[in-house]
Design a protein around this nucleic acid. Structure first.
Ligand SMILES: [Mn+2]
Ligand SMILES: [Mn+2]
Ligand SMILES: [Zn+2]
Ligand SMILES: [Zn+2]
Lengths: 124, 124
DNA sequence: AATATAATGCAACTAAGATGCAATAACAAA
DNA sequence: TTTGTTATTGCATCTTAGTTGCATTATATT
């Protein structure tokens, strides 16, 4: 499973994430590659890059799927929160610690935390 | 805005939430009312009940929209986490406190925390 | 260069959710 | 209780994210 072949399209996607210091939604990636890569291909490359551990994904505040580089564990913990700016729409991984609350009788496997607000560029 | 008329359908929806001690996804509500209420009507009633403050909503782990009763502030804080069971699919509001991490240069307006795991009924 | 098969393009499909409009039902006023 | 106003509903249609099957193409390996 995962990526086996470094195709032109795969290289493009990897390159895009290398040069982006933020998360990218599948929707915007499909738009970005319009004309050079099929929508289905974008979805499948992202899927494979995630399986390979090159990218990771999360569901944004509006239910859209986002991807971002998978930084090494030292910088960002496996379960980290994501920030989404209400003004410019940008989204990014936060390397802060989150206290996952424990709930009696429940076993929590993972936590999905989205923080919504205004990023540094968008302060009024 | 909001609910003005207590129609049969509105009463049904309110009643469903009264007798459910969990969150309900729009998808399952549309199914539940199949034959007695139009899909569009379900969406619109939920929307109005939320505007009225009778219900509140959140986006589940898979991007689906869920609704739940709006308990009084004393029991559940305005920004509370939600739990979603990977086994049975049930979802509910958690009345626990969550530390919203502060991020330098960012203003956080709200937090959306979904905890995923196994509920008490689904422990192995 | 020949081969095996992973990856792609394309068309069609699924499913959640939104929208415009005409018909209907609440409900307040008469 | 009847009537008039208008909120609500049903229905058809649309939008958009995401998926799937299959034939074609490109990559990596020998
Ligand atoms: Mn991340
Ligand atoms: Mn809740
Ligand atoms: Zn911003
Ligand atoms: Zn369960």
């Amino acid at each position: 499973m995962g990526i086996v072949r470094k195709t032109k399209s795969v290289k493009k996607v990897i390159d895009t994430f290398e040069n982006a210091n933020q998360a990218l939604s599948v929707v915007e990636l499909v738009k970005k590659y319009d004309g050079e890569m099929n929508k289905t291909t974008v979805y499948r490359i992202l899927e494979r890059l995630e399986e390979e551990g090159v990218l990771h994904s999360f569901t944004g505040k509006d239910g859209l799927k986002w991807f971002a580089k998978q930084e090494d564990a030292s910088k960002v913990q496996s379960t980290h929160p994501h920030f989404q700016c209400q003004e410019c729409g940008k989204s990014e991984c936060l390397s802060v610690d989150v206290e996952i609350p424990s709930v009696p009788n429940y076993s929590i496997q993972k936590a999905n935390l989205i923080l919504v607000g205004a990023c540094s560029d968008c302060q009024s």
